[in-house]
Amino acid sequence: MNLTLKVWRQKNADEPGQFVSYQAKGISQDMSFLEMLDVVNESLMTEGQEPIAFDSDCREGICGTCSVVINGAPHGEQKATTACQLHMRHFNDGETITIEPWRAKPFPVIRDLRVDRSAFDRIIQSGGFISASTGGAPDANAIPIPKPDADTAMDAAQCIGCGACVAACKNASAMLFVSAKVSHLGVLPQGKVEKDRRVLAMVNQMDKEGFGNCTVTGSCEAACPKEISLDFISRMNRDYAAAVVKSAWNQS
């Protein structure tokens, strides 16, 4: 199949960017979206042009590195799919595809389609961990965990931190990401101990980074390649309120 690509090109964070059109010729329907970009880049390089910079790593939908907005949808319109797992058979021959980077103030463009997502790292560093040294891997079921709690934690732990929630949100809010990270530790016995401190610190860091606020539009949930539920944001709001009340009580 042959396609026209309208791709965002930008040298670095300081210089203005613009859209440039490219022809993608002889693309197989079995290629992934990123493999299609590889083909375009190879032809660009043989012509002596700069290849299109985009992020990828595992290319099997588990690392969260790939991050392109395809025709207005982060990772493309396909449900529960990362860009690296999106196949070209979902596009039509002759189609024009617009490809943009994640757009959010806390995610400055590094180059072309690559953005700097270290704001997410700083949020994790602020509290997305368990302080106790755990030693070696414990025996399975050494700490009994009720099945519903384990399920909730696993649902939250699906988050691969790609940032599609921020990219999809009209407010560039990171609440789906932060709430998944807060919840996946907060519901487990090992993580419960630091639950209050964690939610206060992570929300504080999220605000400092300059992300927007949730308006409950549900766009994040719809765009999430791991189908993280909006329920986690509700859960985080509840945990936050409880933590504020408890720490106010303790202070007085």
Binding site: G72, E100, R103, K105, G212, T217, G218, S219
Partner: peptide, 13 residues
């Protein structure tokens, strides 16, 4: 939080 707008918007909101 979103100083640069998208070229194509496809809102599910």
């Amino acid at each position: 939080a979103r100083p640069v707008a998208y070229q194509v918007t496809r809102s599910t909101a």
